[in-house]
Amino acid sequence: MITNEYSLPPDKIKERAKNIRKKIILMNSHAGQGHTGADLSETDILASLFFNILHINKDDLANPNRDHFILSKGHGAGGFYCTLAEAGYIEESLLDTYLKFDSRLPGHPVKQKIKAVELNTGALGHGVSVGVGLALGAKLSKRNYRVFVLTGDGELQEGSVWEAAMSASQFKLDNLILIIDRNTLQLADRTRKIMSVEPLKDKLDAFGFDTKDIDGHNPAEIIEQTNNLDLSCGKPHALIAHTIKGKGISFIEDKAVWHHKVPVGEQVTEAIEELE
C-alpha cells in the first residue's frame, strides 16, 4: 500500500500553502505573466493533495498502483509548479525559468518536461475524460489507485465535461474524484453572468455523482471529506470546493481582471507582507 510521503497534518499544510503562495507571487512577477488568480485559488487544494491525500511518492512515479492527479484547469500551471517545487518534485530554481523560451515550465503543463504531469492540459474540458479512462483502467485491471481531476468552474461550460460525467457514472467509477475549484469567476466575468453552471450540485447529482460542497481553502476539511468518501459506493465523487480567486492577497481576491495578471513593483512586497 502506497501512502503519501509527507502525510502532513492540516496546520502544517497551511504553512506549506503559504510558502506556495509566496512562490506564486515571486514567480509570476519575475516572469511578467501568469494566471495569478487561478494559481492562488487552487493552492490549498493542491497543498492538501500533494502533502496528504495523494498516495504518491515523487521518487516512485512509475509505480502502477499510485494515485493519479490531472490538472484539467491547465492554466493553473503556476500554482501546480510552485506546489511541485514546495514538495520537492522539481528544483526551486526552475521557477525562475517560468514562461521563458524552451523552459521546462511553459504556461501550461507538459508531461515530457515534468514527470509529475500526466497530461498536457490547457485546452479546457479534457481532464475528466482522461480521468475516466484512468479510473476505468484501474477497474479493468483490478488495481486500487484513485484518480483526482481538478477542474475550474468556468471549465464546466465545456460539453466534453458532461460526456465524461455521464460515462463516469455509467462505469460506476467510485475511484474517480472530481474536484471543482469553484471560485465563481472566469476570464471575462462572473461565471453565473456569462453561462451559469448552477445548480451545480443538482446537476452533478443528476449525472450520478456522489457530490459534496466543501471549503476549498480549509485543508482539514478537504482532507476529511476526501478520506470520508465511500470508495465502493459505485458512484463517482465530486467535491465542489468553494474558493476565492486570488485567495490570500486582498487586492487580488475575487477580481476577474486578475485571471491573467501579475503583481508588479510595490504590489509584490505588499503581497508577500500580507502572506506573512
Binding site: 500526466e118 497530461l119 482522461v130 480521468g131 479512462g133 484512468l134 476505468l136 465524461a164
Partner: peptide
C-alpha cells in the same frame, strides 16, 4: 479522452 486515460493506466 477515455482511450488516453486507459493508455496512461
Amino acid at each position: 479522452g477515455i482511450s488516453v486515460g486507459l493508455s496512461l493506466s
